[in-house]
Nucleic acid binder design. Structure first.
Length: 262
DNA sequence: ATGGTGGATGCTCCA
């Protein structure tokens, strides 16, 4: 089974990109973040034409929004809300006996100080709540957690570890909270099973760079994690870097993981 | 130290 996660930054502007991904990589299931559209306006038909007969959406006007598109039936579709907000960041479905969590963690604003930046405080509280909840989930279940986690955990997940230590997405408090989330249900970083942690790897490049490829100041913000029972079934992982150069591009690129059948 | 771009929206917020 081929799984893809992609922060599309508007699904309606990324339909051609998704068609290209679909034709070239043939995913069985796609988790989308930042769909930026209310559910009645979601382009359901376009995804059905790509072969995604099963679709779960959780969107709102203008901001956030997640979706799961699948060739295989989705069971027990539901969502969770965190920090007392209904901001469309966590969608859950079961496919082929695997619980799929599509997650969009708050970006956290600019200043990495929860005392002066409410968005950063929200991000930290969000990670803490999700962690506490996953600690109550049975880690023996086959589960996948995929999405834009908005944290680059490893030194090799940013262009400059030293310069990024005070930049939101790579501060010690965030990488610490992400490590706690990873430990909560014994999650395994599927991508780093195939691309060694010593190797630099990014999934996001800012729109603000004059030349994203030349400066290459990326971050690995998008992740695919699996629970212990799925670890022996991991077959491959890849980051589709070249989509950053497609027109019009998302600032995030897709991450693909293949899981063998039992 | 600063501003840079892109998306949705509606004269600004968010990333």
């Amino acid at each position: 089974m081929r799984l893809v996660t992609w922060n599309v930054n508007s699904i309606r502007l990324r339909l051609d990109g998704l068609r290209r991904i679909n034709e070239e990589w043939r995913p069985d299931l796609v988790c989308l973040q930042e769909t930026k559209v209310a559910d009645p306006l979601f382009p359901r038909e376009a995804l059905a034409e790509m072969g995604f007969a099963h679709l779960a959406v959780l969107g709102q006007k203008g901001y956030n929004g997640v979706a799961i598109a699948s060739r295989l039936p989705l069971d027990d579709v539901h969502s969770r809300s965190w920090c007392g907000r209904d901001d469309c960041r966590h969608l859950i479905a079961t496919v082929g006996g695997i619980d799929v969590h599509c997650l969009y963690v708050p970006a956290g604003g600019d200043l990495p100080d929860p005392e002066v930046n409410d968005k950063f405080a929200h991000k930290l509280a969000f990670l803490e709540e999700v962690t506490a909840w996953f600690a109550t989930v049975d880690p023996a279940r086959p589960m996948v957690l995929m999405g834009d986690l908005n944290v680059a955990p490893l030194e090799t997940d940013v262009w400059s570890h030293k310069q990024m230590l005070k930049v939101v997405s790579h501060t010690p408090v965030e990488t610490g909270r992400l490590a706690a989330l990873q430990a909560s249900a014994g999650w395994i970083d599927a991508v780093r099973q195939f691309i060694p942690p010593e190797e630099r790897l990014y999934t996001w490049w800012s729109y603000r760079a004059a030349d994203w490829q030349a400066s290459n100041r990326g971050r690995r913000l998008d992740h695919v994690w699996v629970s212990r029972p799925l670890a022996p079934r991991l077959a491959s992982a890849q980051v589709v870097r070249q989509t950053r150069g497609w027109q019009p591009p998302s600032d995030h690129v897709p991450v693909i993981v293949d899981i063998r059948p039992i």
